[in-house]
Design a protein around this nucleic acid. Structure first.
Lengths: 129, 129
DNA sequence: CTTTGTACTTACTTTTATACAAGTACTTAC
DNA sequence: GTAAGTACTTGTATAAAAGTAAGTACAAAG
């Protein structure tokens, strides 16, 4: 699952940042291109692995699984598998994951208003056109 | 400022994620080990470059400047310089940056409660010890 | 008896992010 | 005249993150 080197300065600095700043802690858990998107898809209910794969066609299986495993290890999502063939595995948000969604929503709201205000600025510029 | 390759799959995916997900947009702006910490230090008022450097001793000058420049380019902070020698440069949060701080605070709150609930679980485990 | 589908895993390459180290221009203090 | 302080810049190395491609086990469908 992408090996990391325990003894690098970058890891030390991560620990430093983690101590200084809970935001870094939160971003560790939702950092990665696909994690917010996965979380979004799960926010509307539990999904099978193959459903997620089809819902996000641009992601490779490796990345999808890797992020799902990380989210599970961080207790943001819950994996349930039925011991049948073919396998039947579903993923859903945990209580902690639902809690994070509120913070994520706040970020989304900021992003939308930021994009909007940029748009206005562009419009203001060409008022005489 | 760390060259990126316009034509890579990873850049295409970033664009895809940006379209799908405003959260990715927000995380682009606060991603990077030091950005949340810089923002935190500026949240208590404007600071000189050298003050920031002293406040965050673990960061290298290259990273500090790079992040400051990116934050400035994203209009989250404002740079003001007096044309004197030695130079006198201060950084402060912009209106947009202050708006983001609310979302960042929500993440911090989640992180703190997440850490707390982990602590409780660990305590519950050793109730008979 | 080959193909399809499920949910993964593994090995390898490319791209991006960060760290390390040194240099710049200018001036005041010593 | 050299050392220190300001706010940077540049080059290179290393680590981490993401992508590419292929393989696994099992069963049902054709």
């Amino acid at each position: 699952m992408t090996a990391i080197k325990e003894s690098s300065t970058i890891q030390e600095n991560k620990r430093y940042a983690l101590d200084q700043c809970p935001v870094t802690y939160a971003m560790e858990k939702i950092g990665g291109y696909w994690k917010p998107i996965i979380l979004f898809h799960l926010s509307s209910g539990s999904k099978r692995y193959s459903e997620l794969k089809r819902a996000i066609p641009a992601v490779t299986e490796k990345m999808l699984i890797q992020h799902l495993k990380q989210l599970e290890a961080d207790h943001l999502i819950v994996r349930k598998s039925k011991p049948v063939v073919p396998p039947f595995v579903t993923y859903s948000l945990s209580a902690s994951g639902r809690g994070l969604m509120e913070a994520i929503d706040a970020m989304a709201l900021w992003a939308i208003s930021d994009l909007k205000s940029k748009g206005h600025k562009r419009q203001t510029k060409r008022k005489a056109a």
